[in-house]
Computed example of a mutant assay.
Amino acid sequence: MRKYVGFLCLILQVSIGHCGPVGRPDFVSDEMIALAASVVNACQTQTGVATADIEAVRNGQWLNSTPLKCYMYCLWEQFGLVDDKRELSLNGMLTFFQRIPAYRAEVQTAIRECKKIGKFFADGDNCQYAYTFNLCYSKLSPRTYYLF
């Protein structure tokens, strides 16, 4: 169940398109959002990130904030999406997007490129890795990115 919820959170993190400041596509259900809520709240508490900082990212304003960066990594970690190298494991997200052919190629390209860029700029800092990946992904696939 933890892997399933983790998979859902990462989907939420990267799959809600820019249909306005807080829009979401049809394939992200209210149930998925509800399943992710407790982990989102836990990561906000753990990192101290302000809701306003998360909303700023949703609106395209990327703050250089350590709590925000660590929040992004916390989401990955809490949902079991970090591998033994402490890097983002993307198998679940790719599996999900196999069922949504319209996004498949775009998502695969963004993931491949952003994982490399994220690792390069992180210099061993997991929070910076998550932030750099998310920023890259939001630029390469804006219609599928959303920070939950």
Rank of each mutant, 00 (worst) to 15 (best):
R2L: 12
I11L: 13
L12M: 09
L12P: 02
Q13A: 12
S15R: 08
I16V: 06
H18P: 00
P21H: 13
G23R: 03
P25D: 12
E31D: 11
M32L: 07
Q46E: 01
Q46P: 04
G48P: 01
V49R: 03
A50P: 01
A50F: 05
T51L: 15
A52S: 11
I54K: 00
E55G: 06
R58F: 08
Q61V: 15
S65K: 02
S65W: 03
T66R: 15
K69S: 15
K69W: 05
C70G: 06
C70A: 01
M72A: 08
C74K: 05
L75G: 03
L75T: 08
F79P: 03
G80N: 05
V82R: 04
V82S: 06
R86K: 12
E87I: 06
N91F: 07
M93E: 09
M93R: 06
M93L: 15
T95L: 11
F97P: 01
F97A: 04
Q98Y: 09
Q98G: 07
R99H: 13
R99I: 06
I100H: 02
I100R: 10
Y103L: 08
E106F: 00
V107Y: 03
T109F: 12
T109R: 13
R112E: 14
E113I: 12
E113C: 05
K115M: 13
G118Y: 02
G118L: 04
G118F: 01
D123M: 14
G124F: 07
N126K: 12
C127K: 04
Y131S: 06
Y131W: 11
